[in-house]
Amino acid sequence: MIPQTFEYTAPKTLEEALQIIAGGGKPLSGGMSLIPMMKLRLAAPDHLVDLGRLKDLHYIREEGGALHIGATTTHQDVASSALVRGKCPLLAQTAGGVGDPQVRNRGTIGGSVAHADPSADYPAAMQALEAKFVLKGAKSERTVAAADFFLDTFLTALEPGEIVREVIVPVEDGSTGTHYEKVVQKASGFAVVGIAVRISRKAGKIVWARVGVTGLANHAYRATAVEKGLAGTSGGATEVQNAAAVVADGIEANSDLHASAEYRKHLAVVHTIRALLAALARTA
């Protein structure tokens, strides 16, 4: 429970921060994942660069039909933001179910997606929302889609020297119903499986569906087969069941103390059905 020696800097500007990071500094955001790993000596960064004091990374605003959320925005701020709750309810619901109040008050959206824990909640929503991440280095800036960002367990498209600067999620229109369904691993608070769903239904027909799945595989993914199965249907119970049945097809499911691969896959199906029904109930 005692970390190794490290240096700590709290830069005043993003430029300064990116410079130190370019030189090998390790970004520290809410510290809810990094600090425990350091205490267990599973991580031993030489130099921590605290992003927490950078005011210009902490914001939620609507711009060009999308919500832009700064990397150091806490889970609590996302969960309680009237803007997010009104325009991107899936994200607010997901953030509100992360860990416990202490964790939500410290942990940040940028830290969570950058960490890419295969059981984290946000990544499911990011896949379902087709979110975009603005990645910034000392001399570069690029935007990567969620589908291309989560690569493997704790592995993302971030290059050395880059940070997640901003997360961009869509503003839902009136036809969309959303829901996040989570089976909690009771010791850690993370998801055994988590299913994030968005459905657009017009005139009784599902126009499109998006399904993001976390906890099941090495990284969160979009269950496109489920989405296809739903499109064009009216979203009746049997149609939902049939579509959800394939959510874990072809997935090499995680297996641990808390759930075997077989049980996880089963849970994924059950909770996809539940998430879809809940989201459908919220469509106009």
């Binding site: 267990l40 009771k186 010791a187 850690s188 103390l257 808390h258």
Partner: peptide, 21 residues
Amino acid sequence: AVYDESGQLVTGEMTDYVLPR
């Protein structure tokens, strides 16, 4: 408290040992 065959405590952390809250 789960030990594996070799005597390692698998539930060695609060993140794996499910304590009532």
